[in-house]
């Protein structure tokens, strides 16, 4: 590339830089403020430096029950992830062939993205209360989360299968493999890197979901609900420390997913 870059490149690059600052600036502020000393406040300047507030998060009586809310959200995220991956792979495979009613099902799936989240929460809440079933994070909230993760996963899988070369499967059948062998030994390994993406999506969308859980979490809060509750009564940097910890966890997950993706796609090339 010896071509001289136009002025617009530098202007847009500067704009992009500002946008990244806008995205990450606020977060770096709470990261710094969560590392203050015990006399720390909610705003700059930083007062001292310590891990006091990070430790404070685990003191149950000070900031609510963070640990068990985290455990619930973590388990719920895993459940949502497993169900999302399994169902979206199946549905994606169905959409490789044109079948009667496929348009209807396609639009039903998409419509789940278009319905405002609060309606899903309200509707599931009403159904459960009409049927006399208690709301729980592992029943009603799980259902609400699936209506949000499945459409994304489904769209990704349809895209993946659109680009999938069917000659691998044909070769496998020509060599005498049956449908299930072809699926487990050929198709699944080939789409595995995409499944990591779908899984990460499923987990994080669930782990961070607020609105769809808000009316139907039952008696035990998920982590985002617990944090939302804390915003009204916690006025110490413990709130930021909690933010730092959960965000660090999200970053860790993204890192693991990226590493797994690289490993799997590298294996396919090699």
């Amino acid at each position: 590339m010896s071509k001289k870059r136009p002025l617009s490149f530098y202007l847009l690059a500067a704009f992009f830089g500002l946008f990244v600052l806008f995205l990450y600036g606020p977060f770096s502020a709470i990261f710094l403020l969560s590392l203050q000393g015990p006399e720390g406040q909610l705003t700059f300047p930083m007062r001292g430096f310590s891990f006091y507030w990070l430790g404070e998060v685990f003191q149950q009586q000070r900031v609510g029950d963070f640990v068990s809310a985290f455990q619930r959200s973590f388990l719920l995220g895993l459940l949502v992830m497993a169900i999302t991956v399994a169902l979206s792979v199946l549905a994606g495979m169905a959409f490789r062939s044109k079948f009667w009613g496929s348009n209807l099902i396609f639009y039903l799936t998409i419509s789940s993205l278009i319905v405002p989240s609060i309606l899903v929460s309200l509707g599931i809440g009403i159904v459960f209360s009409l049927l006399g079933i208690d709301n729980q994070w592992y029943s009603s909230a799980l259902a609400g989360h699936l209506t949000w993760t499945l459409p994304f996963a489904f769209l990704i899988m349809v895209g993946v299968f659109n680009r999938f070369n069917p000659s691998y499967e044909e070769a496998s059948r020509d060599l005498g493999a049956n449908d299930s062998q072809t699926f487990w030994q050929i198709l699944l390994p080939l789409i595995a890197p995409s499944l990591i993406g779908v899984g990460l999506f499923g987990f994080t969308l669930s782990y961070d979901e607020f609105t769809r859980t808000s009316l139907i979490s039952g008696e035990n809060n998920t982590l985002p609900l617990e944090i939302f509750g804390m915003t009204t009564n916690v006025t110490t940097p413990a709130l930021y420390a909690l933010g730092t910890l959960t965000t660090a966890f999200s970053f860790l997950l993204i890192g693991v997913a990226v590493a797994a993706f690289q490993l799997l796609s590298h294996r396919q090339e090699g």
Binding site: L23, Y24, F27, I30, L200, T204, Y207, D208, F210, L223, P224, I227, F228, T231, L242, G243, T246, T247, S250, F251, L253, I254
Partner: peptide, 8 residues
């Protein structure tokens, strides 16, 4: 950033 908590 969009894979982290909205509330945070």
């Amino acid at each position: 950033p969009f894979l982290t908590s909205n509330i945070i």
